[in-house]
Design a protein around this nucleic acid. Structure first.
Lengths: 223, 223
DNA sequence: CGCGTTACGTGAAGGTTTTCACAAAGGGGT
DNA sequence: ACCCCTTTGTGAAAACCTTCACGTAACGCG
């Protein structure tokens, strides 16, 4: 079962998203004791085309045996390795407001190997408190706190919009190279810092459009 | 400024998402007193290709004047009309937990014309309380509450995973035809009910992949 | 041990979305 | 009233992603 590095340098983002989808269903199959799965079976579970699965996997190597299918446990392990989710990732929250608090308490993160190791805010009333087992530190001392006490890999940004950019700058300064951005601000960041913007209102807009027009949109993207 | 119904029946979903993006930036321009904008200027602000903007708009009609550009106020009004966001939408929350509470208190919704008019939970300790000005009702009486007291247009699902499907069923029963689903459950619903799934963990997985591989993904989808 | 069956891996075809490039059209100055 | 400049609207081309279809490999049964 050879390489795990991308063969060609350009993988469609959507393919990576589907990889996570496959992993999720493989996890279930694995827990059910299923040892082998064909692209057809997995495709049914995931709601995609079987050829799609084979193509997506082919970006990263050969994982199946012809005539049989894919070994569930091995493929799952490979996918996790490819996604980088074969180990725990540490999250650092900036902005302990309504949303931030909910994120800290959100159990799904931990279930998937994402653990908050730090939290920051500027409000003196919040700094020093413990939320869901995480101590809230002063946002102004982020760099020092990260270095001396609670390092983390991914920054989670849930501040007020007007503080978003400076908070992001501080994250970068502290050495973070990936940010999950819950604010509606388009962040300006140096190259090499990865950002994913989460904006639920976009989805609401989409629903409004669908209700208004009776869904004449095409693609049905996963997640 | 002619029709607003789609010319051809199939509009790419991604184009509708971009429409919301354009509207957001037009809103800003409008508040700055800008009267006219060219596709080039707007494209720069939105981070997309100018031809893309013209194509997207062309799905719905002709809104610009050659040699000049687009009238900001008018185009904004048109886009809102197209998206259906020219009036307030009423939201109904199911599941007043950590996330639900944060959503009720989230100010961005109201700012964009989305107002919670109802909230439901099964926990007797929560039922009857007031969260962010919204009375929490018993989830089992959803149908009645909706009809007699607090109708709403879009259901927002933030329950525990195991209750998600039955809560969704109840929403449909109560006449709701659009659901914003924050649970990781793939809902089974009758045709004609629109669902948008919001799963932040997908984005985290994507960040993991990027960090691990140094971003070799292609597309850069907005929001 | 060979043959049939199954299902992967992949080139080629098909479909969709993005970008290019240009004709056509409106505005404004002279 | 005409001409020039700007920028739209849009076919055509390019890029991209998905699906098809088949060669090929592996297993297992007789």
């Amino acid at each position: 079962m050879p390489p795990t590095k991308p063969k060609s340098p350009k993988i469609p983002k959507i393919a990576v998203i589907r990889l996570a989808l496959y992993a999720k269903h493989l996890e279930i199959l694995h827990s059910e004791g299923v040892k082998l799965v064909s692209s057809l079976e997995l495709a049914d579970l995931c709601g995609v085309n079987p050829a799609q699965i084979r193509k997506d996997l082919a970006y990263f190597g050969q994982f199946g045996t012809r005539g049989l299918g894919y070994p569930v446990a091995e493929l799952l392990a490979e996918l996790k390795r490819i996604m980088g989710t074969d180990h725990v990732w540490r999250l650092g929250l900036v902005g302990v407001g309504n949303l931030g608090r909910a994120l800290l308490r959100h159990t799904q993160f931990a279930e998937q190997g994402f653990v908050f190791t730090a939290a920051f805010d500027r409000n003196p009333e919040v700094v020093g408190t413990l939320v869901s087992g995480v101590k809230v530190s002063n946002a102004e001392q982020m760099k020092r706190v990260v270095r001396e006490r609670s390092p983390f890999d991914i920054g989670v940004l849930a501040t007020q919009p007007k503080e978003a950019q400076s908070a992001a700058d501080r994250l970068v300064e502290a050495g973070v190279s990936a940010i999950l951005n819950f604010t509606p601000v388009k962040l300006k960041l140096p190259a090499g810092v990865y950002v994913e913007n989460v904006d639920f209102t976009v989805r609401l807009h989409l629903l409004c459009y669908s209700i208004t027009h009776g869904s004449d949109v095409t693609q049905e993207h996963p997640t």
